[in-house]
Simulated assay, not measured.
Amino acid sequence: MERITASSATIAACLDRYDGLHILMFASPDIDAAAARRSAAGIGHGAVNSVQRPVRTGGETLIETVRYLEIDSADPDAPRGAVAEGRVGVVANIDPRFQNTRRLEHPNGAFDLVEVVVCAAAADLAAVRARYESYLGYPAHAEGATQVFDLDDARLVLVPDSVLAERLPGERAPALPSLVACAVAVRDIEATRELLQNNGFHLGITDSGDPFVPADAALGAAIFFHQGEPDQRTAPGLGCRPALCRHRPGTRKSPCRS
């Protein structure tokens, strides 16, 4: 309960900073090994925590346990369980018994979270890259002005504020650094585009040609959509991939609930 209370306080502070995305969790098949590796690398974290909740499935109620850790900032004055851009950590892979009880189909065709974009001041990008290299345990590679971590079938992209508007026209970071966008794989990109437009969203186009819902219409962070192939997803290998991004709760309908 103490950890839940502390996490809630962290999110409240993040929301005071700006509306949008504030949580990025990397899924791991072995959360205890992930904690040990980060401890050995000198990365501060709050150890592995467990929370439970009841889930109704197959006519019975089972208890789902979620195990996770939150990474601490290197700044001694920062609150525990948060870094500059928000709450970042590692979560144990979800038990498929519980995953299958959730809504796995969405009208927009979404089936996977495949990219998260962190925007930082150009002068700070190297330091942010170094932080995530230590968090993940392997290096990023450059794609133009951006730095990219390939995480199995997903990517973490670090973009300097000086080129954010080139990647996502019309977008600007609400703060630096911040989680400014995420990408969702869909089964039929044209059907997704039509659904979004019919629901009243005015779409932008990324530098790679993908449609996106601007941040001001998507609860504070842009959401863009990739044509995907759900039957060609790679099996987990590196053990870390973006797992969870959350918008601030609101009354408006989010274009994606992946």
Rank of each mutant, 00 (worst) to 15 (best):
R3K: 11
R3C: 01
A6Q: 15
S7H: 12
D16R: 15
R17H: 12
R17N: 13
Y18F: 15
H22W: 08
H22R: 03
H22F: 12
F26E: 07
F26L: 14
S28W: 05
S28Q: 04
P29Q: 08
D32P: 00
D32I: 02
A34S: 15
A35R: 07
A36R: 12
S39D: 09
G42T: 06
G44T: 05
H45L: 11
A47M: 01
P54K: 10
P54V: 05
P54L: 03
T57A: 14
T57Y: 02
G58S: 13
G59C: 10
T61G: 05
T61K: 05
I63F: 04
I63S: 11
T65K: 13
T65Y: 04
V66Y: 00
R67G: 05
S73Y: 06
A78F: 14
P79L: 09
V88P: 00
G89C: 02
G89L: 01
G89H: 07
A92K: 02
A92T: 01
P96F: 12
T101C: 10
T101A: 15
R102C: 06
R103M: 10
H106E: 14
N108F: 02
G109R: 00
F111L: 05
L113E: 06
V114T: 14
V117P: 00
V117G: 00
A121I: 01
A123T: 12
A127G: 04
A127L: 05
A127Y: 02
A130H: 11
S134K: 13
Y135M: 04
A140G: 10
A140C: 10
H141E: 14
E143K: 10
G144T: 09
A145F: 00
A145G: 00
D152A: 06
D152Q: 07
A154M: 01
L156H: 07
V157R: 13
D161R: 06
D161L: 07
L164C: 06
G170N: 08
E171G: 03
E171M: 01
A173W: 02
A191K: 11
T192C: 15
E194W: 04
E194A: 15
L196S: 02
Q197F: 02
N198A: 11
N198R: 15
F201Y: 15
F201C: 02
G204F: 08
S208V: 12
P211V: 05
A215F: 00
A215T: 03
A217F: 10
G220F: 02
A221P: 04
A222P: 05
F225C: 09
R233E: 03
P236S: 09
G237C: 08
A243G: 08
R246H: 12
R246F: 08
G250D: 13
G250V: 04
R252Y: 04
S254A: 15
P255N: 09
